[in-house]
Write a protein that binds this DNA or RNA. Structure first.
Length: 299
DNA sequence: AATCCGTGGAC
DNA sequence: TGTCCAAGGAT
């Protein structure tokens, strides 16, 4: 039995029954799930995915609505520009691909918000193709089991893709299943903290365990701060704009954060990023909410 | 390559 | 409480 075979056997018996894993899920449904799962936990994605797919069952359904509706529907999943890009992605799918999610990896990678992980995930999980799919879970599992290291590097590298490719079975559908199995293993057993080695199918072959579960060496990389950052201020501003049904006066936005300089910088950033539009200089809306022709192009 | 980009739950 | 981290992407 290869590692992939072991992983698949384990997955067949232990896979979570997630909404987007139902056989009737469309490639669009897979794509939406993958974008939502970028840095957001499964438990928070499930209800959002159901609502999203009910409202916009196809790319054309989403593409026909303003971006602001996508950002509102996104709610508090975090990183709202993912919603913006998913909306742009739906429009690109309609324009370039006649409303069908492409099955070609290069075409997938050309879509807004679709990077190395997401493009491969859609090609493999929606279309059953044989591509290595490497996310944080896969990197951690391979790092521990194969390399004996407690943690993987911070981002997917070309070397990671090659290493994973060599672990995959030849048959495409089975390769895709191996990838989802490695991911699931990393998500529920070989977790970042407190891994459940007793429940792991690699218990007896894991290089990390066989060398005594060594701790990470060297300084860990800097934790990302959140409190007090522009990201927090942007989040507060956007929350107000999501709730609003009409233009929001600047004075209302002034209430969310006392530091005027930082507040102004955060708001300008949201406009720069295309999440917010200004109406005149004193009113703001979620981008897409503005009546046609009402947007002040300069500020 | 390093940083930025939201949010909430577990410890 | 503060820290860590959760199916990344873009620049």
């Amino acid at each position: 039995m290869t590692l992939a075979d072991e992983a698949i056997t384990w997955y067949d018996a232990n896979a979570r029954d997630l909404a987007w894993r139902q056989p009737e899920t469309t490639p669009w449904g897979v794509l939406v799930s993958e974008v939502m799962l970028q840095q957001t936990p499964v438990v928070r994605v499930e209800p959002a995915w159901r609502s999203w797919m009910t409202r916009w069952p196809t790319p054309a359904d989403l593409a026909a609505e303003p971006q602001s509706e996508a950002v509102r529907m996104w709610g508090r999943l975090g990183y709202p520009r993912r919603a913006m890009r998913l909306h742009a992605c739906a429009q690109a799918i309609v324009e370039r691909h006649g409303g069908t999610v492409p099955d070609d990896l290069d075409q997938l990678l050309a879509l807004p918000g679709v990077g190395t992980y997401t493009g491969r995930a859609v090609a493999a999980f929606a279309y059953g193709q044989r591509h290595p799919v490497v996310d944080t879970n896969v990197r951690r599992v391979v790092s521990r089991v194969v390399e004996g290291k407690p943690d993987a590097g911070p981002a997917t590298t070309a070397a990671d893709l090659v290493a994973m490719e060599e672990l995959l079975p030849e048959e495409p559908a089975r390769a895709a299943r191996a990838s989802i199995a490695f991911m699931e293993l990393g998500a529920v057993v070989c977790t970042a903290r407190a891994p459940k080695c007793v429940a792991c199918p690699f218990h007896d072959v894991c290089a990390w365990r066989l060398t005594g579960l060594p701790l990470p060496d060297g300084p860990s990389r800097k934790p990302q701060r959140y409190a007090g950052t522009d990201r927090q201020v942007r989040g507060l501003l956007l929350e107000v704009l999501r709730q609003a049904t009409g233009p929001v006066p600047r004075q209302r936005l002034d209430l969310v954060w006392t530091d005027e300089v930082q507040r102004a910088r955060a708001l300008a950033g949201l406009v720069e990023d295309g999440l917010v539009e200004s109406l005149g200089a004193e009113d703001f809306v979620l981008a897409g909410d503005a009546p046609r022709g009402a947007v002040n192009q300069l500020s």
